[in-house]
Design a protein around this nucleic acid. Structure first.
Lengths: 200, 200, 200, 200
DNA sequence: TATGAATGAGATTTCATTCAT
DNA sequence: TATGAATGAAATCTCATTCAT
């Protein structure tokens, strides 16, 4: 168990980092082998092809992201400050630059027609959309299906957009400001919604 | 002079399309030459290197995007329906998938450390941020600098996030719904802001 | 002792089949190990090198072919229908496609300069040539050394040629027709020969 | 025209020779490039892959063989010595060892499932079968369809078998002896056939 | 302006072989 | 007796770039 699949894991880790830094295409297998300190032969012993390696990284990556979401999102609800909740969600998905960069590459792979990868993105979006809709209901009391759907789409878009922005210019985003403003806006929308409901 | 830089333009156009489809690294000069119907030699007559070609595409691309913004955004203001204005802005930046895809690739180049490209993105963001701030003031009457800054960041993020989402799953985004909900939220925020102001 | 060299035999069998299918060079040791269900390490436990494995297959192969000839050819002579005898000989050497294919590969190895293999082929030819000469004498009564030598060469050539043809297009060869026609021709030649002899 | 596709032809020629000597699989592109005195890059400029190169050699090879047959076989008929005719046919297809060796490799490729190549072999056999049948009719007067078909198959087999034998042990085949013996046998068969016909 | 041929550096991939356990 | 991991040499292939014409 000590060094069982030691190298396999080391390869995955090194490849993940290098590919996040330089892009999948620009990361050569020689780079990876050098980083791990093994021969190219060993690399091919563990992964039959570069594609295989990328696919395994991909699988890990999506598992990671879903795990993060599953582990942390439910905790937000215990906290009853809406702005805080939003901020924590945003932070959750933007604070690991390596993961975000890799995500971006994989997203492009998906866009280029890799159906397998594209499917994973769609699954993830679906999962998040659901979680967000539940949160909106619980935390802000938004129940109108149009509002709920539009807000869900907006929140997902904001998460992705902020992640991109942070990649381009780290430190340029003030999550505090955005979260509190957005929280206020949603709160206002929710109260407007309940007024409409009560005045019917 | 009439068809002087005929081939030059054809090369740029073909390269733009191919690079949007497959990514910059995965698009070989042979691919481009084949698409245009010229020899690789001719390609090198017009562009001293692949980097040069990419840089020219890049320059065109950013010029295009700013031109689009400059040409269309002012018109929105004549229209006094906030939801409509937001919807037109979103559409402006998401309805050409090829441009969005290329943008995504260039963004990655920038993230990977191509400072030249990164700079272009930052310039663009700065320009948009300003335009959006002005619009928010004019259309919604948001003047609080915190709200204005946060809303600017959010709008930029939403534009990018929606563009990504549309790339992953074309047709999955209901711009109508999002625009009107967002318009309502901003309106509510603006009116809350003016209340606060008047009650001081 | 019971399953002592179980694996050794399995390896030989699998290698024989794969090499007959794909050729020696194109059959990798990984292919063979996979087919047998053992590790490459085990393969090297039983055979010091790929060449060793090939040599053992080779030895078995030639032993097999000579055994077939030894076991069956004498029986033909009990049968006194010449066409039947020829047909049985042809069938003997063409009805196992795997063996024929392997033979072809080994023959190429020999042609490429593997003297060891080439020698084996020459030995075999020498053996058959002798058996055939005896048969011609016994069954058809051909005694003229020129006829006997020429017929021997022809019969060997026909056997090889038919084997090739069957490999290219299985089922395309009518051994019945060929055997009876050839038998008639040899019979005619023998009687012409005896006429000549008696008229001297 | 002087050095138009000079290198392309040089590559084909060198590859043909090397592959005939060492086999297709054992001939590396580096070997070929070295033999021609060009870089591996140039090789790939002219042939997109090793398979392409092999396929082009193949096309040339079969064209060559059919050309030889077309050019020479008709001439045999002017000569009215049957033994001479047979000898010339045998010589035609056995005197270029390089071609025979290459043929053998291609045949194996075909046997391994390369349908394209297999098809070429079948076409060639069909063509030869027809030419041989015509010759048998014209030269020997064989008309019985069973004899004609069997003799055709035998002649094809003898050609292939002799070619193999010559590869294994050059100089070991006495074409003179074989041709005259075979000519006599066919003549005897033809006269027996005509007797049967006239006695019906 | 345009081209086809050539190149070299480097990427991916294959595979027989070694070895510690 | 068997294995999985590792290796290195060599093979196939890609591609931006150069250059003579």
């Amino acid at each position: 168990m000590s060094h069982d699949n030691n190298n396999r894991e080391k390869i995955l880790a090194a490849a993940r980092i290098l590919m996040a830094e330089k892009g999948i295409k620009k990361t050569s297998l020689a780079d990876i082998a050098r980083a791990v300190g093994i021969s190219k032969g060993t690399l091919f012993y563990h992964f039959a092809s570069k594609d295989d390696l990328v696919n395994d990284i991909l699988a890990d990556h999506f598992t990671n992201l879903v795990d993060i979401a599953k582990a942390h999102l439910p905790q937000h609800l215990k906290n009853n400050n809406p702005a805080q909740i939003l901020k924590m969600i945003f932070e959750q998905f933007t604070n690991d630059l390596d993961i975000t960069r890799l995500d971006l590459y994989l997203l492009q792979e998906g866009i280029q027609g890799n159906e397998n990868i594209n499917q994973k993105f769609l699954e993830r979006k679906r999962y998040w959309r659901k979680v967000i809709a539940d949160d909106l209901e619980t935390v802000f009391g938004i129940t109108d299906p149009v509002y709920s759907s539009a807000l869900g789409a907006m929140l997902l878009a904001i998460i992705d957009g902020l992640a991109l922005q942070i990649l381009v210019e780290p430190g340029s985003v003030n999550l505090e400001e955005i979260s509190s403003t957005l929280a206020e806006m949603i709160t206002l929308l929710a109260s407007a919604e309940s007024h409409q409901r009560s005045s019917r």
